[in-house]
Design a protein around this nucleic acid. Structure first.
Lengths: 216, 216
DNA sequence: CGATCAAAGATCCTATAGGATTTGCCACCG
DNA sequence: CGGTGGCAAATCCTATAGGATCTTTGATCG
């Protein structure tokens, strides 16, 4: 068993800054002051600097030499289209591979549990919905059996999560139903059906989110 | 015009450590001593630590808390299969998109120039071949027009480059011919043909590299 | 009145030092 | 002779301080 106390400050700082950006406590495009951030988290600038370097590779912050770090701006319409295209490349294949992997009952049960989405109640309904949606896609990619594919999907989710919090409301029931259709195809071991279900889900989600960009 | 002098040490250290690992000056799986590395590069540990954090996101080193960094071990057979599968997901799509992008003459000329591969002469023939091969795939992915797709392809190349240096000899002429077949398809604006040419190239390259794992 | 230049403030970048933890080695015991 | 416990060295991790650079503010000149 592992001790509960923290091991490295860098990991904590990394998670803290990630949460700060995800929750928009630091506005997209805003400058990030290293010293101020270190004081706020009650640590020295060194681990902060290290965490920011990792976050830069994740695409959540960008660095300008001798100027400082800035939070990545929100996705533009073009970047959103790229993101959807990228998901359409990766995730249907991941779903197909999961369907053909011969998963055991436990894995299928876990996936089915992740497919359910929280309802529109509660204070942080959008955040909760987004997190659970991410968890489902994340889990499914992991069940593909290809670690690199899994990592690529996870890397994309960060961007999506970031910009999604600005949506007023998601179509909770519809998304959950689409998720379960994917799970059914995976359970029955039909790769083509799983890929098709995922494709439909992604394009439908794309159409649901698109009106957001009209109002900007 | 930009001054020639270095701006940030971290970027230089990042490139230096990357070269060290690529050229196997640090053996795969070997521990990386931060202090020793800092002395060797004549800098302080702080920028070294920052560069290593970025390299960890790239997958070239892995960190164990309170123990240190280690160079990523060579690819196993299973990881190699995953890598090929990942390339087969990404790169044929990238080629198809480049073929349908309506590239101008200059872009096509640049791509065609990158398709040529250096011959088996010279001291670092393998390294030169690998670098040029990477440049071709890199350029093609960039011409797809999707920046995220481009980044994903580039991220994969690092692993490939790393493990490829252990191959005794590559099939120089064959690879170059396959490259040119891809360029031809892209030039004629045929997405399906471009994707097929890329698929054939990747599977052929896979078969050429596979004997390596038998002898381990 | 607008633009340019200079100086002050803030910030980043790098270096050095000390505390905490792990690892390797050696003696000791069963 | 093999296994266990403890000690010392090496290493990582964090904090603090100083030099270099950029941004901003204010004043001066055209």
């Amino acid at each position: 068993m592992q001790p509960a106390r923290r091991i490295t400050l860098t990991d904590d700082v990394y998670a803290a800054v990630q949460a700060l950006i995800m929750d928009h406590e630091v506005q997209p495009g805003a400058r990030i002051n290293i010293d101020a951030l270190a004081r706020r988290l009650a640590v020295s600038p060194t681990p902060v600097r290290e965490a920011l370097a990792r976050l830069e590779s994740d695409g959540l912050v960008s660095k300008t030499p001798l100027v400082g770090y800035t939070a990545t701006p929100l996705l533009t319409r073009a970047q959103f289209e790229e993101l959807v295209e990228m998901r359409l490349i990766l995730e249907p294949t991941a779903a197909a591979k999961a369907a053909g992997a011969g998963l055991d009952a436990g894995e299928l049960a876990g996936l089915r549990a992740d497919a359910d989405l929280p309802g529109p109640e509660g204070a942080d309904a959008i955040a909760a919905f987004t997190a659970q949606d991410a968890r489902f896609h994340h889990t499914l990619a992991g069940l593909s059996g290809n670690r690199m594919l899994h990592d690529a999907v996870v890397r994309l989710r960060a961007h999506l999560h970031l910009f999604r919090l600005h949506f007023p409301a998601a179509h909770y029931g519809v998304s959950a139903r689409e998720h379960h259709r994917i799970v059914d195809a995976v359970t029955s071991g039909d790769p083509d059906a799983a890929a098709a279900a995922m494709r439909d889900h992604l394009t439908a989600a794309r159409d649901r989110h698109l009106p957001f960009f009209e109002s900007r």
